[in-house]
Simulated assay, not measured.
Amino acid sequence: MFSPEGPSLRELAVQALSSVERGYDLLAPKFDHTPFRTPDAVLDAVGSLLRRTGPYDAGLDLCCGTGAGAGVLAQVCRERVIGVDFSAGMLDVARKQAGPTGPPVSWVRADARALPFAPSFDLVVSFGAFGHFLPGELPWLFAQVRSVLRPGGAFAFPLVAPPRPGSPGYWTLLGFDTVMRVRNALWRPPFVMYYRAFRLGDVRRELTEAGFRVELHALPEFGRRPDGSPRVRLVMARLPEPPRSPR
């Protein structure tokens, strides 16, 4: 799972016994060499679809980590890109890796549940961060995203289909979530990271209640499951367009 440049077992153990913020500060220098970093294939597929749904002016990468999603935004946004994360260590790596081309990119340390921005973005993206939010936090999180989007703006993120019950992937995720729940019951501070808690049905409902119109786009690069459903979707949640002034 990890490349030779990735963290050692000892480093992972120390990170897992830390808070989420401190754990990612420690992991940041080696994060891009772990399976937790969104694969380039997913980033490329999302970027390809977003280029067809634009154009966009200003973009926000929510929970940006080391900046992979900001790189996608730099390809589809014309004016500016901001990456926001609460880990200072991840932001330090993102600053060092930022590409020299495209619109200006800046990095802001903040909690996604208390975004310090006006409604000035046309597009918000997020990659692989939702396991760090408990289901009860989604309404507030989605309300925060809505608060920084201009009318007609979009919130986009990829969502992988859950593994079938009884499959090796199913038992792997169930085992991981169980270990994390036991860890959090016995150790403080908690480390919230639950891969099975972010379900499409719940997400659609909460986005709709937050005022978004939800669209689902299959990412054909990843094929379909035996039942015909996409293996990976892009969830595109849009705000209503501003009313047109009468002529």
Rank of each mutant, 00 (worst) to 15 (best):
G131A: 07
A70C: 09
V124F: 01
G59I: 13
S18D: 14
A114I: 05
D57F: 05
V192Y: 06
A118T: 03
V105E: 04
L27S: 03
D57G: 15
V105D: 02
R109W: 06
L234K: 06
P240A: 13
E209S: 12
F36E: 12
L49Q: 08
L219T: 09
K96E: 15
L174S: 06
N184L: 11
P162T: 01
R196M: 13
E209Q: 14
P39D: 03
S3V: 10
R146E: 03
V42Q: 00
N184H: 09
G175Y: 02
F133I: 13
A114T: 09
C63F: 07
L50K: 05
V148G: 00
D57A: 15
G47I: 13
P162W: 01
R244T: 14
D92I: 02
D85F: 08
G59S: 08
F127K: 02
L174T: 11
P242Y: 00
R225N: 03
P100G: 13
S229Y: 00
C77S: 09
V93H: 03
D40E: 14
G128M: 05
Y56Q: 08
D111N: 15
S8C: 08
G6Y: 04
P230A: 04
F2S: 05
L73F: 06
G23A: 07
V125K: 01
F31E: 05
R238P: 10
G102N: 12
L27I: 10
A70N: 07
G54K: 09
D40Q: 11
E5Q: 15
D177Y: 02
R150V: 15
A70M: 08
D40K: 06
V145S: 02
R233A: 04
A13G: 07
Y195M: 09
V145F: 11
V203S: 02
P119E: 03
A156M: 10
L9T: 06
F191N: 14
V46E: 02
A94G: 09
V145L: 07
G6S: 07
P162F: 04
M180R: 12
A70I: 11
R183A: 07
F176N: 02
V148I: 06
A161R: 14
A110F: 07
G102S: 12
W171I: 04
F121K: 00
E215C: 11
L134Y: 02
S147G: 09
G128A: 06
L17D: 09
R22I: 11
Y194R: 11
V192N: 04
V81C: 12
R205E: 14
R95C: 12
V14N: 00
V182H: 00
G67R: 07
F222K: 02
D111L: 08
F191K: 12
F191L: 15
F142R: 01
